[in-house]
C-alpha cells in the first residue's frame, strides 16, 4: 500500500463519515425523493471502492491520465492505487498478478502487447474484478476498452497526406517513421495508413523504418531518406516527440515547409509547440486529458451497472482532433507544475 494510497484512503474515509452524517441528517423523509435516491445509489456503488491502475510506465501521456483519474476519483471517494512498472513488461505482469491477489474493485491496465496480460485479465474477471483496458487492447476482451482508434488515426493522417501530396499535387513521395516495428500501436497505424495510401496510385511510400521511439534515430533516418529522395513530399510520424528529430533533420536540410510532417499525437504540449514553430505541419491529437475522463466514466459505469465482471464488453473510442494552427492549442493539454 502506498503512502499516497493511504492518504487517499483516509480522505475517502473522512468524506464518507461526513456524507454519512449528512445523509443521516437528511433523514428518511428525503428517501422518497428520486433524485436523492439516485445519489444514494451512486454513493453506494462508488464510494470507498478501490481502483488499481497499472500503466506501462508514468510517461507524459500516462501521467496526464493519472492526474485526471486521480482528480475525479478523489472527488467520488474512490481509492486509487498506482503501480509504475517503468516500461518493464515482466515487472508489469508481476504488479498485475499481485494486485489481483489484493482484490481491488476495478483494475485499469495499459497493455504493452496484445498477449502479455491476456491471462491475468481473465483471471481478474474470474476473481470478480472489473477490468478496463486503456489505449492498447489485449487479446482478452474485458469489461471496457477506453482508447484511441489507432487504425483510424493512421487512415486520417494518410488521407490528409494524400490531400496534400497525392493526385499530382506533390511528388507523391512519402516516408513513414515507425515506432518499434513490433509494437501493435505502431504496426496498426502503419498498416492502416499503407492501406489508405494504396487508394491513390500517385503516392509512393519510399521508406518505412522504425526509429524505436528515438528522436536521434528518426533524425538519422530522415537525413538519409532526404538524401536519397530530395523531392520527398511528406513524413508520417506515429509519435510526436520521436518525430521531432525528423523535423529537425528536415530543417537542417533546408527543407522546412517543403517536406510536410504529419504526426499522431497524444496531445502533449510539446507537440503543439513544435507545430507553432512550424516544425510539424499537422498533428492529430487524441487528447490524453479527455481520454482520462473517458476512463473515469467507464469505471463509474461499471461500478453502477453491477454486471458480473466479464459479462459485457464495452468500447469507448476517443475522438481525435486536428491541430493545424495556434488556434487549436486547446487540443493539447497542459502539464501542471508539480
Amino acid at each position: 500500500m502506498s503512502k499516497d494510497g493511504f492518504g487517499r484512503g483516509r480522505l475517502g474515509l473522512v468524506l464518507l463519515t461526513i456524507l454519512a452524517a449528512l445523509a443521516g441528517g437528511a433523514g428518511p423523509a428525503a428517501a422518497a425523493d428520486p433524485r436523492e435516491e439516485l445519489h444514494a445509489a451512486f454513493d453506494k456503488a462508488v464510494k470507498g471502492k478501490t481502483v488499481a491502475w497499472v500503466p506501462v510506465w508514468l510517461g507524459v501521456l500516462e501521467s496526464e491520465w493519472t492526474r485526471v483519474m486521480k482528480a475525479h476519483f478523489d472527488d467520488y471517494g474512490i481509492k486509487m492505487i498506482v503501480r509504475d512498472p517503468n516500461f518493464k513488461s515482466d515487472v508489469q505482469l508481476q504488479a498485475v498478478s499481485t494486485l489481483i491477489n489484493e482484490h481491488p474493485d476495478v483494475l485499469v491496465v495499459q497493455n504493452p502487447t496484445t498477449t502479455l496480460l491476456a491471462r491475468e485479465i481473465k483471471r481478474a474477471e474470474e476473481a470478480g474484478i472489473y477490468v478496463v483496458q486503456v489505449n492498447m487492447a489485449s487479446n482478452s476482451l474485458s469489461d471496457a476498452y477506453v482508447g484511441v482508434d489507432v487504425p483510424k488515426v493512421g487512415r486520417s493522417l494518410a488521407h490528409e497526406i494524400i490531400q496534400e501530396c497525392g493526385g499530382g499535387k506533390g511528388s507523391g513521395e512519402v516516408a513513414i517513421i515507425e515506432g518499434e516495428a513490433t509494437a501493435a500501436y505502431s504496426l496498426d497505424m502503419k498498416n492502416a495508413a499503407m492501406a489508405e495510401f494504396k487508394t491513390d496510385p500517385s503516392i509512393k511510400v519510399v521508406s518505412s523504418q522504425p526509429a524505436n521511439w528515438d528522436a536521434n534515430k528518426a533524425g538519422d533516418i530522415t537525413t538519409t531518406v532526404l538524401q536519397q529522395h530530395p523531392n520527398l513530399c511528406a513524413i508520417l510520424g506515429v509519435w510526436g516527440p520521436m518525430t521531432a528529430g525528423a523535423a529537425q533533420a528536415v530543417k537542417n536540410a533546408g527543407k522546412q515547409g517543403k517536406v510536410k510532417i504529419y504526426v499522431a499525437s497524444d496531445g502533449q504540449p510539446a507537440d503543439c509547440d513544435l507545430l507553432e514553430q512550424g516544425l510539424f505541419t499537422e498533428n492529430l491529437s487524441y487528447r490524453a486529458d479527455t481520454q482520462g475522463e473517458a476512463i473515469v466514466n467507464a469505471v463509474i459505469a461499471l461500478l453502477q451497472n453491477h454486471d458480473k465482471p466479464g459479462s459485457k464488453h464495452i468500447a469507448y473510442y476517443t475522438t481525435n482532433y486536428w491541430v493545424k494552427s495556434k488556434a487549436d492549442r486547446a487540443y493539447c493539454f497542459t502539464v501542471p507544475k508539480e
Binding site: F87, N212, W213, D214, A215, N216, A218, G219, P241, A244, G245, A247, Q248, A249, N252, A270, L274, L279
Partner: peptide
Amino acid sequence: IMVASTSLMHLQIAES
C-alpha cells in the same frame, strides 16, 4: 549535438 539535432533530450536513450 543530440539536443541540437533534435531540439529535445529524451532520457530513454540511456536505456537503449
